[in-house]
Simulated scan of single mutants.
Amino acid sequence: MSNEAEGYDAPRALLTLYDEALPSVYGYFVRRCPDRATAEDLTSETFLAAMDAARKASPPPINVPWLIGVARHKLADHYRRRHDRFTDPVAEVPEPDGEDRWDAEVDRIVAESVLARLPEHHRTVLALRYMDDRSVPECAELIGRTVHATEALLVRARRAFKKHYPEGGAR
């Protein structure tokens, strides 16, 4: 049975959710983009894509976790579109400033790679908890689970992450 047959008005649901969802979607981008203009553009793209999806004959359920999923795809598309990401030459090698950031940067790259290989529900809960710095109750609300179920999911997600993380990695 389709959502329309049940009386579900997805475009109206999205408009109703907009004020509540905007800070979460924009916050997702602002922590992951080099500047606010890019975060604002990607936020707009996310809501436009959501409205397009909401107008389909069988629209998805419109909620904040679904919007964050759309946002993840928009961010990935943005970085795929950037042709200049590896073409900026380094003017000169920066001098060490007392702390070696190389290990931290390598750990970040490896962690992102491991995260990308995890199932979506593990990626989502780990990103919300550790990248977005959300509390467990906030994560639970955003993914539509109980706090207890979210804590259990976090345990499983961390275990899966550690299993795939190379030896000698995360400090």
Rank of each mutant, 00 (worst) to 15 (best):
D52V: 10
K56Y: 10
A39S: 04
D97G: 12
E45M: 07
P94Y: 06
F86L: 15
V106A: 12
K56T: 15
K74Q: 06
R72N: 05
D77R: 05
R82D: 12
L48T: 11
T87D: 13
W102V: 08
T43G: 03
R82Q: 10
I68K: 01
E120I: 05
P119C: 10
R108Y: 14
A37R: 08
A104E: 09
R85Y: 13
L67E: 01
R101A: 15
I68A: 02
D52M: 07
H78G: 02
D84E: 13
A71Q: 05
A57Q: 08
G98D: 08
R80W: 01
M51Q: 05
M51T: 04
R117D: 09
V106S: 11
A76Q: 11
D84M: 05
P96F: 09
I68R: 02
P119H: 08
E120H: 08
N63P: 00
E112Q: 15
L115G: 11
R72E: 04
R55F: 11
A37K: 08
A49M: 03
D84S: 12
V110F: 04
D97L: 10
D97I: 09
V114F: 07
G69F: 02
R117F: 09
A71F: 03
D97E: 15
V106I: 14
P60K: 00
E95Q: 10
L42P: 01
F86V: 10
A50Y: 01
A54H: 00
P96T: 13
E112T: 12
R123N: 07
V70N: 02
W102M: 11
R55T: 09
R82L: 12
L118H: 00
L67S: 03
A71K: 06
E95I: 00
L42N: 01
E105S: 15
